[in-house]
C-alpha cells in the first residue's frame, strides 16, 4: 500500500521555482533514497512533507486519503516522522525530555495536568534499549556524542510507531565508525514495516540500504528507479547533469 503520495507538487518563492510538478510515492516497508545536488529542491520537498511549507500547487495523499499539512504537528499526527540533519535537539534538556518534546505524557488535563517523569523516563530507556544505545534518559543532551544524539532523535520517531520516517542526511555529522550503526537502524525500520525516505549525499549509504532512488535536479524529478537497475555512476551522472535522464 502507498503510505505517501505526492502528485504534481510545485513550490515557488516569488519568481524562484524550487519545485516543479514533482510526483513521488512510497510504500510500506520500502526505503527510498532521495538525492540531488545542493539547491536541487530536496530540502523544499522535505519541508513540504514535514508540514513546514504548503505547496503552491499539487496534492498530498496519506494512505490514499487526500490531506494537507498546515504545521509540523499535522504531519506528525499523520504518522510522518522527520529526523532533521541538525537533529533538532535541545541541549539544555535531558534525553528523555527531548524524546517526548511536544508529546509529553501527562496525568490530569489542561492547567492541572502534570508531567509523568517516571513513565517518560522508563519509556525512553526502553526505546534506547531497542536502538542498542547506551544513552540514559536523564543525561543532558549537551553532554552526548554524535551517535548518542542521533539515537535520541531516532527514538523520537519510534514513540508513535509512525508510518513513514524521513531522515535528512543522518550520516553527515557523525564519525565513520557510527555510520554502520545508523544504517542498521534504517534497515531495522524497513524490516518492521515502516516506509523510509533517506535524503543523502552519500552514494554508499543509499546503495546499501535503499530499494529505490529518486533524483532531483533544478526542482524537477529526473529519475526514479529501483536500486537494482541503476549504478552509482549513473546516479552521479544524473545528479551532476552529465546525464539528462535515466
Amino acid at each position: 500500500m502507498k503510505i505517501l503520495e505526492l502528485k504534481n507538487i510545485s513550490k515557488s518563492f516569488g519568481a524562484i521555482h524550487a519545485l516543479e510538478n514533482v510526483d513521488l510515492d512510497i510504500s510500506q516497508g520500502e526505503a527510498l533514497g532521495l538525492m540531488g545536488d545542493n539547491g536541487a529542491g530536496k530540502s523544499t520537498l522535505m519541508k513540504i512533507v514535514a508540514g513546514n511549507f504548503s505547496p503552491t500547487n499539487g496534492e498530498i495523499f496519506v494512505e490514499g486519503k487526500k490531506t494537507s499539512f498546515s504545521n509540523p504537528l499535522d504531519s506528525r499526527n499523520h504518522g510522518i516522522e522527520i529526523v532533521y540533519q541538525d537533529l533538532k535537539l535541545c541541549n539544555n534538556l535531558t534525553a528523555s525530555a527531548n524524546v517526548f518534546l511536544g508529546r509529553e505524557i501527562n496525568s490530569g488535563f489542561g492547567f492541572f495536568s502534570r508531567l509523568k517523569h517516571t513513565a517518560m523516563n522508563d519509556r525512553a530507556a526502553e526505546l534506547f534499549g531497542e536502538l542498542k544505545s547506551e544513552t540514559r534518559p536523564n543525561d543532558l543532551v549537551e553532554r552526548m556524542s554524535g551517535g548518542q544524539r542521533q539515537a535520541v532523535a531516532l527514538a523520537r520517531t519510534r514513540l508513535s510507531d509512525p508510518k513513514l520516517v524521513l531522515l535528512d542526511e543522518p550520516t553527515a555529522a557523525i564519525s565513520i565508525r557510527q555510520v554502520a550503526g545508523v544504517l542498521t537502524r534504517i534497515k531495522q525500520l524497513k524490516e518492521t514495516g515502516h516506509a523510509v525516505i533517506l535524503v543523502s549525499h552519500r552514494m554508499l549509504d543509499v546503495f546499501e540500504c535503499c530499494d529505490r532512488v529518486a533524483v532531483l535536479r533544478r526542482g524537477n524529478k529526473i529519475a526514479d528507479k529501483p536500486i537494482a537497475k541503476t549504478s552509482p555512476e549513473e546516479v552521479t551522472g544524473l545528479i551532476t547533469g552529465a546525464l539528462e535522464t535515466a
Binding site: 514535514a50 513546514n52 504545521n71 509540523p72 504537528l73 506528525r76 522527520i82 532533521y84 541538525d86 537533529l87 533538532k88 535537539l89 535541545c90 518534546l101 511536544g102 523520537r156
Partner: peptide, 8 residues
C-alpha cells in the same frame, strides 16, 4: 528551531 519543528 527544534521546538518549532516538533510542533510547539
Amino acid at each position: 528551531d527544534a521546538a518549532e519543528a516538533l510542533g510547539i
